[in-house]
Computed example of a mutant assay.
Amino acid sequence: MKGVLLVNLGSPDSPTPKDVKPYLDEFLMDERVIDVNKVWRNILVRGIILQTRPKKSAEAYSKIWWEEGSPLIVISERFAEKLKKQTKMPVALGMRYGSMTIKKAMDELRQQGVDEVLLVPLYPHYAMSSFETVVVKVMEVQKEFFPNVKLTTLPAFYKNPDYIKVLSASIADSLKDFEYDHILFSYHGIPERHVKKSDPTKYHCKIDGSCCFTNSVAHNTCYRHQVYDTTELVKAELNLPEEKVSSSFQSRLAGDPWLKPYTDYEFERFPKEGKKRLAVITPAFVADCLETLEEIAMEGKNQFLEAGGTDYKHIPCLNDDDAWVSLMAQWANNWEETGNLPH
């Protein structure tokens, strides 16, 4: 029997330092998130970061926490419930980090008789700190606890034509009553070395402004190429003016070079160039979370307005949008019937 396993990032159980600390520990100790040797990672995370970060992060979570719980969890649950109504297969939701574990979700499927699972990492793009770590973790759990369950992974869908249409329609709907000078596609940032580590050729990715636009097998696992591809495809779908669209990268740790341009720098730059009405979309995520709701919708807005901007609009993620749910159901049902996956 076939079933669907949805996996997203995860969340602490509450917006308190007590619950945020173990969540951050699990997240930051992941070797695909902070990819240094384990001894140094332990010193960096447990000796330095976790001494101060839980309190700051808890304050940030408190700003965006809903009455029902973590927005990311609530939205993902709503998405899963809607998906269940559009497929005959069992559907379970797990998180890469936190108490809603992948093991619990797989056990839920197994108890319903599922022995063949479609793994859906809820990330449009491939990155070792998001898509890859989900796939690796699920494979580890499957090998240890569910050795007789067959796994199939939905590939990164960042350029799937149907996905681009759904994403574009959502953006267009949000922009209906907003006159903008510029639209910023702000993607989650990653260290430059992650891009190079993910390059199977070991020579193509130079992050020099041209390699992302030179055809290569490296693009299958190149986050930078894939996010720029998403921007270009949406721009074409909506016929957006070239000069009114750009991409940037948010959320970084100090010390290493991360993908540029940095979103917070763009918030400072745009008003100086006369771009005072800004719309921001965060297509690295399919569900709104701490990064989109606090960092972009709140802090980003304040920064942009303080820099001289006049109007700011945060465009929500797809969340549990009906068209997005229907597209996922179409992909899942097609896999159940034919074994084929979208590309």
Rank of each mutant, 00 (worst) to 15 (best):
F157E: 06
H225T: 12
A218S: 15
V114S: 03
A127S: 15
L233G: 01
T52A: 07
G47S: 13
K196H: 08
V166N: 08
F27T: 01
G113H: 09
N239K: 15
K88D: 15
D256A: 15
P257N: 05
L119H: 02
L9G: 03
Q111A: 07
Q112N: 10
G300L: 01
I281D: 00
P17R: 13
W335T: 01
L154I: 08
R78S: 13
P90M: 12
T152I: 11
F146E: 05
T101D: 11
Q142S: 15
W66T: 08
Y228E: 13
S326W: 01
D321Q: 12
I164G: 03
G255I: 03
G3M: 10
D321R: 14
E59P: 06
M106C: 08
Y180A: 15
C289Q: 11
L9K: 04
M139D: 14
R110I: 03
E266W: 00
L50Q: 04
E237Y: 07
P200S: 09
E243W: 11
Q250K: 03
R277Q: 09
K38C: 00
K313S: 00
P12Y: 00
S248F: 09
V245R: 08
R96E: 01
E242V: 10
Y158D: 03
K202S: 06
G300E: 01
Y203M: 14
E140V: 00
L293I: 06
D311E: 15
M100R: 15
E140L: 09
G209C: 11
S62L: 11
S247N: 11
E232M: 13
F249E: 02
E273Q: 07
A60I: 02
A80I: 04
K56N: 13
L184A: 08
G3Y: 06
I64T: 04
P241Q: 02
F249V: 02
K202Q: 11
V36K: 07
K159L: 09
N42S: 12
D30T: 13
D25H: 15
Q112M: 06
K235D: 04
F270Y: 13
D25M: 13
T16L: 06
P54I: 07
K137S: 12
